[in-house]
Design a protein around this nucleic acid. Structure first.
Lengths: 210, 210
DNA sequence: ATTTTTTTGGAGTGTTAACTCCATTTTATA
DNA sequence: TATAAAATGGAGTTAACACTCCAAAAAAAT
């Protein structure tokens, strides 16, 4: 006899409330990206977002809930940015444009920070089941986006039928993650460049006209 | 006028002292692997290593120093284990034996934990310069070990002269790191298998007899 | 055997960080 | 305009954690 149809029992947010909530998430995301989740205190977030403790706990019942919001924020940012390059990949040039997008970000950031999702993944995967599950979904979505791009190339016969978009998409994503980690540790774009270029070269071996 | 020739002003350790110190490092390494560095308290380490607070601070002046010891412990463990497979790679079979070694560990561990060095890297890289530097050196050594293996194959003419051991070694290491991260997040050996196999297939394209 | 050095026990300290509480102001709704 | 709901300020609480201190036991050096 649940009279409440609403699944969530969250209080409604006013426009102002939404803005404050978003401000908190963005501040938390930046800080956690720079210092890690454990290295970011609620007080840090308060200061950066210019909110009081009661505000923060009004919108998020505990730190873990804020972390979950940060995960979904970072996920949608990444998926959004990358899908601009990955949707309807119509040529190898388009694939290389995606590569350049990734590499350029690293260079612009002096190779600091790594992948926002990868960093969260590594820190939380073994200690927070819920976080792992969310991050896993995000990676799957990301992989899917790459796979669809490759499938598009295959359908356009840029790639021959020996190319397996499932395997190649997953391999590309792993190369990307590993490349970003090494680039971050080395403070040199070399690893992400080599990782992506090697995979792209491999994909090129499935060119139709070869 | 420094009369002390010794670079380090560490007190000498007796055999018993060495054992205790090692016990602390091993306990800390396991805990930090399972729960992260920030997630591991000094008290956790004390209990696992069965030592008192004064013992721990007798051997390590602060937590950071213990972390550095853990980094070098994990590095030498990994380099040691992998070099058994990577030294004098005399065939593709040997390369696949290395692949199997990596994959089997993940399967045995139910895909939990990821890479001990990668996990430390990701957690510490942006907040601890000294740690980043150490971890970077370890990755370089690891990469070197892979490169030497590939060079050996090249010298034996298993690979043709189009193969670039520098690039391939780095690409392999990134694939390994990314593969382990995704495998850890997904709790499925798929990603590490696909990552390594795709890279190995690419390397095979440089076979002499092809 | 005696002195010095190393190792160990364990209680104690100061700080930090997550989270609470309640009053007040602002905004939505009837 | 009156009433309810949401948003905010900020001091306060509690627990955990890194680290200290001093005395005592064990081992090494002379």
């Amino acid at each position: 006899m649940n009279t409440s149809i609403n699944k969530s029992n969250k209080p409604k947010l006013t426009k102002k409330g939404q803005e404050t909530r978003t401000r908190i998430i963005v501040a938390a995301a930046e800080l956690m990206y720079e210092q890690g989740v454990a290295g970011t205190t609620i007080e840090d977030v308060q200061q950066k977002a210019k909110v009081s403790a009661s505000q923060l706990y009004h919108y998020f019942k505990e730190k873990k809930e804020l972390v979950m919001a940060v995960i979904s924020y970072q996920s949608s940012r990444i998926i959004g940015n990358h899908s601009r390059y990955l949707t309807d990949l119509d040529s190898f040039e388009a694939l290389y444009a995606w590569r350049n997008f990734i590499v350029d970000i690293q260079i612009k950031k002096n190779c600091e920070g790594g992948c926002p999702l990868g960093a969260l993944a590594s820190e939380l995967v073994e200690t927070d089941t819920e976080a792992r599950s969310e991050i896993n979904s995000s990676f799957l979505e990301w992989e899917d986006s790459i796979r669809n791009g490759l499938r598009f190339m295959l359908n356009r016969e840029e790639l021959n039928s020996n190319a397996d978009p499932d395997k190649l998409a997953l391999a590309l994503l792993t190369a990307l993650q590993g490349g970003l980690l090494l680039t971050q540790v080395r403070r040199d774009p070399g690893p992400i460049i080599t990782a992506l270029d090697t995979m792209l070269e491999h994909i090129k071996s499935f060119s139709k006209d070869k």
